[in-house]
């Protein structure tokens, strides 16, 4: 698929910008203005995550990066989408939407033949790995809920013998490791 990828790689900035707009469009209309225009990542972390996420993911995707690399690059985006109060289907809908974005930006890639199908498959793969990350995020939220309840009355539960037994884990600290 190298020919198609090279073609897309050359157009990646325009594709990333259009894809980022699509992500932004999933937010309520009246709230989009500032988030779309402010470029300070500290004052506008969501807008920055969309922008840098779109750029870094397309860059990797069009370079034929490994699954691990794609996971690393899309991780922040999925963390954000996982807590935006959306149903899972909508939270991840921006990924298959990339197919439409590409078609609209570079037109039907008729001449590329099988390459197009391969690209579609690569985006499907991106969706699958994103779903893995999404589920991990949701599970983390539930684990954090449990840990918060434990920490809230930690010493009282310890006195009442309701916590785990004394041992190396206990000795190494309360707040370390998995929740």
């Amino acid at each position: 698929m190298s020919e198609l990828l090279a073609h897309l790689h050359a157009r990646r900035e325009a594709i990333a910008a259009a894809w980022q707009k699509r992500m932004m469009a999933t937010l309520p209309h009246a709230g989009q203005g500032f988030l779309a225009t402010s470029r300070d990542p500290l004052m506008n972390p969501m807008g920055a995550t969309f922008r840098t996420g779109a750029s870094r993911v397309t860059e990797a995707l069009f370079s034929g990066a490994s699954r691990e690399e794609l996971e690393r690059r899309i991780d922040d985006l999925i963390h954000l989408r996982a807590v935006q109060g959306l149903p899972p289907s909508q939270a991840l809908a921006f990924i298959p939407e990339l197919k439409n974005v590409i078609r609209e930006e570079v037109g039907e890639l008729v001449s590329c033949g099988n390459d197009q199908a391969e690209l579609d498959r690569a985006i499907d793969e991106l969706l699958y790995l994103s779903f893995d990350i999404y589920v991990r995020c949701r599970e983390q939220i539930f684990a954090l809920r449990v840990r918060s309840m434990r920490d809230r009355s930690y010493k009282l539960m310890e006195r009442a013998g309701l916590l785990w037994e004394e041992g190396p884990e206990r000795e190494s600290g309360m707040n370390r490791g998995e929740p």
Binding site: L27, P28, A30, G31, M43, V83, Q84
Partner: peptide
């Protein structure tokens, strides 16, 4: 005030402005 609320910055929901 609109873009100063952490809930708006995290949700994009205009009613959190």
């Amino acid at each position: 005030c609109a873009d100063k609320c952490h809930f708006y910055l995290g949700t994009g929901d205009p009613k959190n402005m």
